[in-house]
């Protein structure tokens, strides 16, 4: 049975700074209708899970995990031995998400966001585990052959201290078998608000074999195959934020996503 949602928006606003990208995802979470978004970055950056702790200082062993290019960045921009760990951490491009999970390095991945009503015909159950596994199976079926949902038991508690999302194991992971080993090809993180869900996804381009120029076609496939949208129900790609969206993003960046208090907790 194909379930047809009333309104689907396809959004590709182009490269944005890290704080604006995460603010926009929250705006979509709080908007009406379905949103399928391509997230592009104006610089490499790291996103942190909603409750992840930022290392207290750069000698913390989790620091390079939470920010894989920190040492390179620090040596290039902070040669002074007098720079304090706080000053170094302050200058790193990292932003906190509203979704859970671990830290993710962005820049060369395929980053997507899906926001829509939940519960709804497409997500009848608000259970985070069920929603994550459901969308993982949908995404897996539309990626390269061999990519599938990991499945198995939830081991969330064991994963809390693993900083890097791609080192964590979750039933909803998208995985690929390479030389007898299971490699994580994509991870998902979610946020629920009353009546809505936001799913942020990061897919490795290597295993996923998705060229950048094919991103829109892939999202349109997702829209047709999963949301059941026909040509006439789909809007054209929106490439510029509306004035209202831009205003809400700016406000969210100023008040939260662009602040030290939000990002360095």
């Amino acid at each position: 049975m194909i379930l047809k949602p009333a309104k689907i928006h396809l959004l590709d606003p182009g490269p944005l700074d890290p704080a604006s990208n995460m603010a926009l995802d929250e705006v979509l979470l709080e908007s009406e209708g379905w949103w399928l978004r391509l997230t592009r970055w104006d610089r490499p950056c790291v996103t942190l899970g909603r409750f992840q702790s930022w290392p207290q200082n750069s000698s913390d062993e989790s620091f390079p995990q939470i920010h894989p290019f920190s040492s390179q960045f620090v040596s290039a921009t902070q040669p002074s031995p007098t720079s304090s760990p706080g000053e170094i951490a302050e200058s790193l491009p990292a932003v906190r998400r509203v979704t859970g999970g671990g830290s993710i390095l962005h820049g060369e991945d395929l980053t997507i966001a899906i926001a829509g009503p939940c519960p709804s015909p497409h997500f009848p159950d608000r259970s985070p585990g069920k929603v994550a596994t459901q969308i993982s199976k949908v995404l897996g079926s539309l990626l390269s052959p061999g990519i599938h949902t990991r499945g198995g038991e939830d081991r969330e508690k064991e994963m809390v201290d693993v900083v890097d999302c791609f080192q964590r194991r979750s039933p909803s992971d998208l995985v690929l078998e390479v030389d007898g080993e299971t490699v994580k090809a994509g991870g998902l993180a979610l946020a629920f608000r009353p009546g809505r869900v936001l799913i942020e996804g990061s897919l490795h381009r290597g295993p996923a074999s998705r060229p950048v120029e094919g991103d829109r076609s892939w999202m349109e496939l997702l829209m047709r195959e999963w949301l059941g949208a026909e040509g006439e129900t789909a809007e054209k790609w929106q490439t510029d934020l509306t004035d209202e969206q831009a205003g809400r993003v700016s406000e969210a960046v100023e008040n939260r996503f662009g602040t030290v208090e939000w990002n360095r907790r």
């Binding site: 509203v98 979704t99 859970g100 999970g101 929603v131 608000r193 009353p194």
Partner: peptide, 16 residues
Amino acid sequence: FEQQFGEIESVKAVSA
């Protein structure tokens, strides 16, 4: 009433 008072995380999901 009916406004968010906190957040809880489970299974990579943050719920209001």
